[in-house]
Every structure is written in C-alpha cells, then in structure tokens.
Amino acid sequence: MNESVTAPVIELSGVSKFFDQFQALREVDMDVRLGEKVVVCGPSGSGKSTMIRCINRLESHDQGRIVVDGIELTHDMGNILAVRREVGMVFQQFNLFPHLTVLENCTLAPMRARKLSREEANRVAMEYLERVQIPDQANKYPAQLSGGQQQRVAIARSLCMKPRIMLFDEPTSALDPEMIKEVLDVMVELAKEGMTMVVVTHEMGFAKTVADKMVFMDHGEIVEVAPPQTFFNDPQSDRTKQFLSQILSH
C-alpha cells in the first residue's frame, strides 16, 4: 500500500450536483495524489467542467463530499478561501482582469490574500512570467496580448499564489490553433516540475505525454479511469471507444 506515502490531495466521494432538475454529476468518486497528473475528457455536457469547478467550489456540490488538502469543502467561507489559496485555476476564457496590467494581474492576489509586500509580489510575479516566457509584456494590458499570451499570463497568475494543485478547465479550447502549442508547452514544463494537475482537455497528444491517469466522463458519471496506455490502446467501455474514435479520427 503506497497510500500512506502519497495520500490523496483531492478526494471526491459520491459527489452529485444538480442544476434545477438536471443532474450534472452523478455520485462521482475520484482521487488525486500529490504530484499526480490527471486528464479528464468526455463529450461536451458530460460534467467534466462542473466537476473541476466543484474542486475549488466555483460550484457547490449537493451531495457527497470533497476534501482538498485535508480540508473539507462546506459552506464555511474560511475553508473555501483556504482551499482556493492552495488550488490554482486556469479558465477556458482566460478571465484576466482587463483593467490591470499583466504584472498587476499577477501581484493582486499575493498582495491581498498572502499579504506580500509589493516588491516581493513583483519579484515572484516576474519569476513566473519568465517561466511562461513573457516577462517583456509585464506592463501591457491583457487586451494588447494574443490569446496564447493571455492564457500564459493566466497560468502565471495562478502560480504566483504558489498553489499545490493546478486545475485547468479546457485551457486551449478558446485559442487559435497556432497558439495552442505555446500554452501546452508551458503546461508540460509545469508537469515535469512535479505539479499536481487536473486538466480538462481534448488535446489527446498532451494527455499521452503528461497524464498519469485518464478519466473519461459521460452524462455526469465517471465511466472509465485508466493509465494512458490502457486508456488509448485498450479502452474497456463502449462509450469510451466511441468517444475516442470520434476524437482521434480527425
């Protein structure tokens, strides 16, 4: 049992979520261990975004429990804030703050939530902006950057809070094809450094290189969990096979 060595940092058990009558998640169980890279895929509307958004409580779950880094997510605002400071999130639409410069986007949370001094926050921000290879854009506004650059800033912004876990919600879906690679490269780098990552994506090439574990969702359920080799070469479920044939045939 290696469970004692690497206890799960994210633990979902029996999580259900309803939007009015529609059930978006059906008793989802999932574990993510420290340093593990999990790629979640599935057709649109399968609940994969909802699940990832429940992990830092952008959505609240209705049943079951979610424990992140030893903290259970309840209505308690203190717990939620504590979890959010440990968990970074990257969105499909970047969601950079348009009224702040790139640098200010990155320093806002460390200064306000972590109480870093401006100098310290700037130093950390520049360090991460260099990691995502856009230190020279630090004083521009988001609207002046390309989509790929904006998404890399969004990643840097999350990293500035020094999170233990990073969540990616379809980070390349809103990008023009030529910009997808620059974002994926940054994510691969991050994975190599040992970051715990949960990634919702359709980029199967990325999944094959990076993932420790593939999760396939459909209709709000987790249909299949497997290592990438098994998942791509020998899928068990018919739904997985069908999905893979559709997505890989292009």
Binding site: L58, R84, L108, A109
Partner: peptide
C-alpha cells in the same frame, strides 16, 4: 461584469471584499 471575472478572482483566493474592491 462577466462571471468569469468573479470566478478568476475568487479562484486565486481573494476574499469577497477584495474581489469587489480590486476587480
């Protein structure tokens, strides 16, 4: 202000007051 702004700001761990005040 689009929902994404709230979500991004809360997901980096800002409190509700800080989200309003700075974002």
């Amino acid at each position: 202000i689009p929902r994404g702004q709230w979500e991004a700001a809360t997901s980096v761990g800002l409190s509700r007051f800080h989200v309003l005040r700075y974002v």
